[in-house]
Design a protein around this nucleic acid. Structure first.
Lengths: 182, 182
DNA sequence: AGTAACATGTAATGAGTTACATGATTCT
DNA sequence: AGAATCATGTAACTCATTACATGTTACT
């Protein structure tokens, strides 16, 4: 039972999902490819932490929908009582920033312009998602979901994403201000 | 030549360091254990990108100090012209936050209190480091190093660290405000 | 005498990515 | 007919962590 396994259980505790959907949904929190997800789901099913149902679709290929079982929820609750391990951030731009005085300002600026673009796109996507979960939970602008709502977690995470994005954008803009134009 | 290899070259472009020091210094940007660093340094030496000198010490065990060679600097400059890949963040707390409505608020609060502590400690360490590089570069409070200074990269990275820390602290405090006390 | 930090290495295992493989369904 | 998305799986490889292994020096 590694972190990714608990991550899948975490998503499944909110709603039943296919392996494909799990793969898409877990990206912002714990990036993983389908080649990692599918075998892991099979193991979780073996362990009786999740169940699986074949769902036939007419508009799309059939899919296997996984649901969390009581044992899975118990494992999840147990895991939640343990302290979370420290976050791990791996960003090539940090390494490049460290040694950028070795190249011309123009080369450096290009890196930060690209990153700025990346965070601005991400920001837009986050805003859209926040709008959509506000509607799901029937929330007015500025109102907060209650703790017991299953959307509470998603809500605070989206807010974190927005705050982080904003900070990163500010940082990139600040760097571009102090890195000379040529 | 993976990202870690370029990361080592990046640090070495600023100053010559032992494998042990490299291992300590690279942690904030690209976490890696010594078991990954030492074999990689041997490969970089084989490729003639770095050179190695045995330095005898009396107060501590002897060490091997690595220096970047001209070919290493060339590889670094080449790498800097390529776009940086997207940052990868893996944080167990995000996964736990997503499903925290499955446990009592007390259990959830504990996670965020611990994380708040973590970021406050980190913030203090960053402030100390920023002070020390200000002195190295002979900078007044509020002044910025010039682009060509080898400390420029470290300086903007420390500022990013501080901004990120501050944002994370704000987020944790906000979450603790809206998660009920019991 | 024992612990902690410094210092370097290898071996085994686990986690994660890329590539290989296949097929359904929709849209252009 | 071809591209894009949906959908699931395995195999090979690289990357990263943990464990094994050893030795120095300083401090208590």
């Amino acid at each position: 039972m590694n972190t990714l396994a608990y991550g899948l259980l975490s998503l499944l505790s909110h709603s039943s999902l296919s392996g494909y959907d799990l793969m898409l949904k877990i990206q912002p929190f714990w990036p993983a490819k389908h080649s990692q997800i599918y075998p892991l789901l099979a193991r979780l099913e073996q362990k009786e932490l999740v169940s699986c149902a074949l769902v036939q679709q007419s508009d799309k290929p059939d899919k296997k929908v996984y649901s969390i079982k009581e044992a899975g929820l118990a494992a999840l609750r147990e895991w939640l009582t343990e302290p979370a391990s420290d976050p791990v951030m791996r960003d090539e731009l940090m390494l490049k920033a460290f040694c950028m005085s070795n190249v011309s300002p123009a080369v450096s600026r290009k890196l930060f312009v690209a990153r700025l673009e990346h965070y601005r796109n991400k920001m837009t996507r986050l805003q859209d998602r926040l709008q959509s979960i506000r509607q799901h939970d029937g929330l007015e602008e500025g109102a907060l979901p209650v703790y017991s709502s299953p959307y509470f977690g998603a809500f605070i995470l989206l807010n974190k994403g927005m705050m982080t994005c904003r900070t990163n954008i500010e940082w990139c803009e600040w760097v571009l201000q102090i890195v000379p134009e040529e």
